[in-house]
Design a protein around this nucleic acid. Structure first.
Lengths: 237, 237, 237, 237
DNA sequence: GATGAATGAGGATTCATTCAT
DNA sequence: CATGAATGAATCCTCATTCAT
């Protein structure tokens, strides 16, 4: 939440600029640097109170989305739940979409930080157990933030163009890649980047379905085993 | 198209009944017999003209969605493009959602029929080449019906509860299963149904991303090879 | 009012197209032909009821503007006074501005028709008495339609770009010119078109002030005499 | 600028009092003595800083209006550009309108001073060349202050009631009259005041159109010649 | 049956003004 | 005095659905 102020910004005319805030991709320590505010018309909060309000708005938005569904998250309702006026909402967010975006970015970057940190600690572990651990972490993260990480991106079509840049994988991509390179001895595929992308998709969406439906009737451990096996088999055989 | 009339039905108040038209799941001859709740159907278009009108509406809806985006597909516009009045639209479909649903079902069941048919012809082929062939077919189908099969489900949150039952895999599930059983000798996983579900997810969403973004920069053939390899490796190693 | 349907049309995105409906400028009988509807999204009224509603909306708008001032002429209020719903308003007019525009065009073209007709009958009269007659007519017209012809154009900044094309003079310009040419013997200025433009401005705005303030304390007849004299002196001396 | 403080005043509830600061109309030495209603004045900026702030606000307002259009001149934006807080803005001006009014008065009185001064120097010149000189000066002034002198009055309907008292002519009226009286020998019209009013209207609005559109395609010199001729012919023939 | 006019609740957004700090 | 966060009424516009003709 420390970077909240930096994240509150104008999104130009609703989603016209095709290239979104590019994901930090520094090969070594890919700590995301604060995204440049594109001509933000909204004042960035300068007083204590302002930060609190902006925060309250985001929390209100999240709460409504989770409890009442995205379509009930009108600007007026968000303001109401946050305990402020609509006017205040527009003081911090240029439009409704910006709230959702801030919410997602907030969640994603936190999640990504967790993943990257774990991944670094697992750099020296063998591929399979390391992957398995990461899978477990991912499942936990996605379960905790299911609404924000999955549902919202579906519910806000305009946000879809940003989906890529807002996805957790994107934020962790370079670290993921470094992890694979670290284990290249065990891996048979040559194009690591491509393999990574394919596995990411396969993994994430299986998790999404596991969380919402669990059509497999597997236990969580069994599920993670299978998912890991799919990834490892693909990479190593 | 023949079963159109059967598919047109009322969904009660928008999506309150949780269980939609359940997918046929007969293990062997899974020819879907239309199980339509006769209650709630607005109208049985027995006359030629009626069917034509309903069909025109669906085509109009599809055309608008594909060309102008989902949010431009208002009921008035659909009727306009179809060349009838809104009043008539409501003669054939109880509400907007029913149109979308009919459209999806239409597309899905056609696609599923193609898949099943191909699958049956490949029953005696070895696992890998057979799978590869199916993968190619699926990619083709998803590409052709990208908007209907992927985008709509995202754009109509209320339809998401139906996603499962409206997905192509669901319609082909039993055939798919039969296919796997036919090749059980090559397969090491024990729970075929679960394995199938996992592979389906992994495959379909990778295809979705390949079609919309192709972030991998693979050629279609390369992509299909990889996807197939992922599935085969998972099943057999 | 007969051409109402033709006049109800979309104005593109609010006033972006710089070139407005060009004024009819046929040298001979400059009867304005129905302006082409630029991509009008709104249905043109086909039933009796529709025409009545559209008409009621225009009248409501005029009434509100005249009685309550332009700023009270909100879309909701216009609909209310017209006795219909806002929805209906937007059935016939793509946006608020279009209503005002329709109102002005309606008034202007009617006024212009009167002027042109009179002018034609005065073609053979000597310059001064003919001009004096026209001045009287103009004053009458502007007095009757003061709000629509003067105030609105000021109150709708976006409409200002159209001011030229919506002004009465513009609609009568070719006839006016023909009138001057007819009297060229009495006239000393060489560039009739320019002279006409200068006189038009001088005349119209003096009338505007006369109607709203009459800071001169002249009687109407005296005022018309002076205005006429100004024009005649400019043209002939 | 010295008289700024005097000009800052409260206008009651937005423009309810019909009679604004009346223009000084002393026939001879018409140096405007500021007649400000002390009631309603928000604040007397006696300190240096205060005057500077108020001045900065006016300049900010002008800048925004000219560069970004009137509708972008919100109070918040004006304060922002002026480098102060909205709160401060309301310290110096009771409401938005007061800012606009101050801006107009400022500009008008400066312009009027120039006109009057020139006029005095031309008192002994013959009518035509003197008028021609004044016309040139007026055109220059209007061109420089086009936005403030013309556009604003259109954009702030509430200000229109003040139009008369805020117009340049009004501020120069007595001097103008004195000028005409000085030349009464050349003039045939008897009621000089009325003639003056008529000529003022004719002149000013032609200039307005010349500046914004120049529909005549005349050069500036030609235009001034024509305008002058119109005035002289009217006065002397 | 068909038509298309009418509905109206509801949503996003703005901006002059106030007032606690 | 200055600040800037908060206010909230008000505005324009949409679109699924109904129903009189």
């Amino acid at each position: 939440m420390a970077r909240l102020a930096e994240r509150i910004q104008k999104s130009g005319s609703p989603m016209t600029s095709r290239i979104p805030t590019p994901p930090g991709a520094a090969p070594k320590g890919d700590a995301r640097t604060a995204e440049v505010s594109d001509i933000d018309r909204r004042k960035s909060p300068k007083q204590q109170r302002a930060v609190i309000t902006a925060e309250a708005l985001l929390q209100a938005a999240e709460q409504i989305i989770v409890r009442e569904g995205f379509k009930n998250a009108t600007t007026n309702r968000i303001a109401e739940v946050a305990g402020v006026s609509v006017g205040s909402l527009y003081q911090y967010f240029p439009n409704k979409q910006a709230i959702v975006r801030a919410l997602v970015e907030e969640t994603v970057s936190r999640a990504a930080a967790r993943v990257r940190e774990n991944l670094r600690n697992l750099m020296d572990e063998p591929l399979e157990p390391a992957l398995r651990r990461i899978m477990g972490l991912l499942l936990e993260i996605y379960r905790e933030n299911h609404f924000i990480l999955f549902r919202i991106l579906d519910d806000v079509p305009e946000l879809r163009q940003y989906t890529k840049s807002l996805a957790v994988e994107t934020y962790t991509h370079s670290t993921n890649l470094a992890f694979l390179e670290q284990h290249h001895a065990e891996i048979r595929v040559t194009d690591l980047r491509t393999a990574l992308l394919l596995i990411e998709r396969a993994t994430i969406h299986n998790m999404q379905y596991f969380i919402t439906d669990n059509p497999t009737n597997l236990t969580e451990d069994q599920f993670l085993d299978e998912i890991t096996r799919m990834a490892v088999n693909y990479l190593t055989k």
